[in-house]
Amino acid sequence: MVASDLPIGDRIRHYRGGRRQDAVAGLVGISPDYLSQIERGLKVPSLPILYALAQELGVATAALLSEQPPAAEEATDTAEAAVGRALLGYAPTASPTRATAAELRGRVEAAWQSWQTDGDRFTRAATTLPGLVADTEYAVRAVRAGTDPTERRGVLRAAADLYCLLRSYLRRTGRVDLATIAADRAMRAAEDADDPLRIAAAQWNLGHVLLAAGQPGEAEELSLRAAEQLAATQMPEAERAAMGGALQLVAVVGAARRRRWSDARDRLRQHAAPAARMVPDSSNVGWTVFGPTNVALHALSIDMEAGETGEALHTADAIDTSDLPSLEREFTFGLEVAACHSQRRDDAAVLLALLGLEAVAPEDLARTPLARQLVLTVIRRARAMHARQAEQLAVRIGLV
């Protein structure tokens, strides 16, 4: 079995196995160089050549085609599907009685903690979230009709935090459509709770949904407007600085996605960095992980996306992620360092970085498109020893 997103060239290389490239090419009637270019993704084989390769490799022609399966054929009994059913209201409550605000608060905080720190966070979240979402929805409906304003506000605050977490989970599992619903529910709960901090956090989440949906301009506009509103809000200065800075980082990413590198750097330096000086890395206000290190990570991201790999690696050398309360941000840092090494064609360094990421966050490595792309690049381009190690890694993360 190979992953549905594995390119044709990599499928051919996989099924060729240990057979020599020149031997297979000769039997098919093409040059070894042409087969090499097909396997490296530089050429697309014609249908007759594809059929001949399939015959020689002993597989069906369809096995060499890298097409995503139709959505209707996807399994509906997966743990991730259960999360979606809970969000849409099709899952029963896990508890026979309504959970209190304090109980929900503890469960949501534990779920957030696991999501930000556990290497198997997807497995844990898929187990925890369906019941937690169902119980939270049940509690929200109950307190809306209740008479205890303190309990109502507590439940709504827990719901806002949970739906911000759910947005992150759904985006990472490829369900941007459901992530949008989760972000909207987070905003509704935060507004109903009349909680300025959670309203800002919900706007930050919505900005990330827009980025994931390929709408960086809208994300930038939303986050900047939210930052302006937050500046006039009454709340502790450290919280306002952290959430304002986090919203500025969404605008930074939006500008960078539109290739406005100068605007992104100016906003990072003039708005996000001053806010970060007021916030320690460990504060994690609104679960945004905003602080000086996160600002430095965004500077690295800008350099990497702009192709300025030398400057990016220089920036990376000065970053210490050991105090970050989020494994996801640490993973993203390592992945972007690997991408910089890949741009410089240092495949040994890429492989070393990927193996390090596998050790700390194997599920993220298996699910992240950039990580999968980097593994394939090492297989295609690296020396034989490193290519073999990358092939073994591809097996472990489900690429082949």
Rank of each mutant, 00 (worst) to 15 (best):
E103R: 11
G310Q: 10
Y138T: 14
D195E: 11
V133G: 01
R257G: 04
P325Y: 08
G58S: 06
T150D: 13
A142G: 14
M243Y: 01
A238G: 11
D317N: 12
E73N: 12
V253I: 14
D5E: 08
T377N: 14
A182Q: 04
R257S: 10
E73V: 15
R141F: 11
Q343P: 02
D118F: 08
T100L: 05
R107T: 11
N284Y: 02
E221K: 12
L327E: 09
A125L: 05
R20G: 09
A182R: 03
V285Q: 10
C340T: 05
H208Q: 10
L87T: 06
A186E: 10
G286V: 02
R107G: 07
Q116V: 07
Y90F: 15
A390F: 07
L35T: 09
M385L: 15
S95Q: 13
I379G: 04
A71T: 14
A145P: 01
A183F: 00
A101M: 05
R265K: 04
Q21G: 09
P45H: 04
L297Y: 07
S322W: 09
R260H: 06
L335A: 01
L355V: 11
F290G: 02
A160I: 00
A299S: 14
Q234P: 03
R367K: 08
A189Q: 05
T368M: 09
G9L: 01
D161T: 10
T288F: 01
R269N: 07
G398S: 04
R259M: 09
A251W: 00
H386S: 15
L313A: 03
R380M: 02
Q389S: 13
A139H: 05
V250W: 01
A189Y: 11
L6W: 06
D10H: 15
A200W: 03
A82I: 09
T123V: 06
E103Q: 13
R16E: 06
A212M: 05
D346Y: 07
S223F: 00
R383I: 10
A202T: 02
H314G: 08
P369E: 03
R188L: 11
Q55I: 13
A353F: 09
W287S: 13
V395S: 15
R124W: 06
E328A: 14
T123H: 10
E308H: 12
P7C: 02
S114G: 14
A94W: 11
E221P: 03
M1Q: 12
L300K: 01
H271N: 06
R240G: 06
S46H: 09
R171M: 12
R124Q: 10
D33G: 15
E358K: 11
L156D: 01
R267G: 00
Y51K: 15
I319W: 12
L170P: 06
P274S: 01
S4Q: 11
E218V: 13
A361T: 11
R85C: 03
